[in-house]
Design a binder for these strands. Structure first.
Lengths: 111, 111
DNA sequence: CTTGTTAATCGTATATTTGCGATGAACTAT
DNA sequence: ATAGTTCATCGCAAATATACGATTAACAAG
């Protein structure tokens, strides 16, 4: 892709928010997170039974969530147990909470 | 793209969350939202001065944010004034707040 | 009507995402 | 050692996203 000559510099916050947002920008990943968070399941196999998608696709989405830090995996041969990464989950909570804080949007009204 | 035979059915919530998340999944869109929210600017032209990207690219990102509902535009010829869509902003706030609520992640721990 | 300003849209090139089946890796059980 | 189970990774195809320059649209000012 042709990129802008003077590449835009983003803050760590901006990159971080965008990265987490991208992780939850697909409905199946939101569903997976909800399932993990509600403890309705934990092993990959249970997810593949509940969600009508190929195993490889589920695995791919799990990898995306792992990379985002929102979940963690514990190898438990031959299974893998996935869980919410509590610390990062709380970080995401405060990050989005801060971003969407009412004060920001209501400081001034153009209309 | 080859799609799964029995397409996954998502809830309105899941689709909605994913849609908003996708809107803020690019750092430049986060920056635009922060600029609009902090009222450092409002017209498209001001954004194109601050952000080193082609006018057409900024316009494209603004359209994405418009489509998400997070911002609104008021035509003010020959300019267009963009602002945070307060109502949808607050909706997003509660949506993400609810999703990342601590209880969900901490109900149970696999580790 | 012509000119200038502002912003959207079009067309294009490239990068990334998404989904699948097939295969491979890691480990258990026999 | 062999077979079975579970999950990750590879390779591919198709869709989407990203960025740009060029053009168009809408309007004001003269």
């Amino acid at each position: 892709m042709r990129r802008t000559l003077s590449a835009v510099e983003y803050s760590g916050d901006e990159e971080g928010m965008a990265s987490i947002a991208k992780a939850i920008s697909h409905p199946v990943r939101i569903r997976i997170l909800k399932l993990l968070a509600s403890q309705q399941c934990c092993f990959t196999g249970e997810l593949t039974e509940i969600i009508p998608m190929a195993q490889s696709t589920i695995s791919q989405h799990l990898k995306a969530l792992l990379d985002s830090g929102l979940i963690q995996g514990e190898i438990n041969p031959p299974k893998v147990r996935y869980c919410i990464h509590r610390e990062n989950w709380l970080k995401a909570h405060s990050m989005f909470g801060g971003f969407f804080h009412a004060d920001l949007a209501c400081r001034y009204d153009c209309h």
